[in-house]
């Protein structure tokens, strides 16, 4: 984790994303946003608001139609597919609502998977993956396959995987959406810990309860930034 304190983790500068499905549709129009390093930000909005598009841009999965997207100080707009993939693998840790684990791989192998594509040696990969499984409290489940794990355990494996490449930014898309309240709280506690150790955490959600775990909430409606709300003091559900 290279931290340059004065440089934001993510900057969106007048970003527009247009999809051409028959008629051009602006999923995002002229959005500008800066997410500081080490911050805990929730992106909130109803479905269809453009928050998924925003997440795809921040996660280097997509390129803006117009404007600049700087991730870890680098402009995604001008990058080739290959450069974006590399940046994504090293800088962003993804956590999804549906966990997205590889069904045939064990928990340990799932956690180690990103390192395979970075050419890290097997022994080192496994050591690092074991360390992270231990951190999320699943050391003894290392050899289980996803279908042998509960939903909460799967999401913790996914979080361990998101952290394995030591990313600057953890990007979570409705991470508690498929979990009951208790396991959801455990998962949110893990994000809180990550925030506590100085990592940038971005949480995409449509639930206010969940969003209020962040230090600020970015509201997206109809492809536009509606406002940024600071969550302070007693209201924060840390």
């Amino acid at each position: 984790m290279d931290v340059t304190p004065d440089e934001p983790a993510v900057v969106l500068d007048d970003v527009t994303k247009t999809y051409r499905l028959g008629q051009p549709i602006d999923a995002l129009s002229s959005v500008s946003l800066s997410i500081p390093r080490g911050s805990y930000t929730a992106i909130m909005g109803p479905s269809g608001s453009g928050k998924s598009t925003l997440m795809n841009l921040v996660g280097c999965l997509d390129r803006p139609t117009e404007g600049r997207v700087l991730v870890d100080g680098r402009d995604v707009a001008g990058m080739s597919d290959r450069e974006r993939t590399t940046l994504r693998g090293r800088t962003i840790g993804f956590v999804f609502q549906t966990f997205n684990l590889m069904p045939r791989l064990s928990a340990l192998e799932n956690v180690a998977l990103p390192l395979v594509f970075q050419g890290v040696r097997r022994r080192e990969r496994r050591a690092r993956a074991r360390e992270l499984l231990d951190r999320v409290g699943l050391a003894e489940r290392a050899d289980h396959r996803p279908n042998q794990l509960s939903g909460g355990q799967r999401q913790r494996v996914a979080i361990a995987r998101a952290l394995v490449a030591d990313p600057a930014i953890v990007l979570a898309d409705e991470p508690t959406g498929n979990l009951d309240t208790a396991t959801g709280s455990d998962v949110l506690a893990l994000f809180e810990a990550l925030y506590g150790e100085g990592r940038t955490v971005i949480l995409v959600t449509h639930e206010r309860d969940v969003a209020e775990h962040a230090e600020r909430i970015v509201h997206v409606v109809d492809g536009e930034l509606e406002g940024i709300e600071a969550v302070t003091g007693a209201r924060r559900k840390a």
């Binding site: 597919d81 290959r82 993939t85 590399t86 994504r88 590889m102 990103p114 594509f117």
Partner: peptide, 16 residues
């Protein structure tokens, strides 16, 4: 398809 998507998301290049 989904597995391919997961691999690409976590950093698998086209050639991988």
């Amino acid at each position: 398809t989904r597995e391919i998507g997961i691999m690409k998301t976590v950093g698998a290049q086209k050639r991988d």
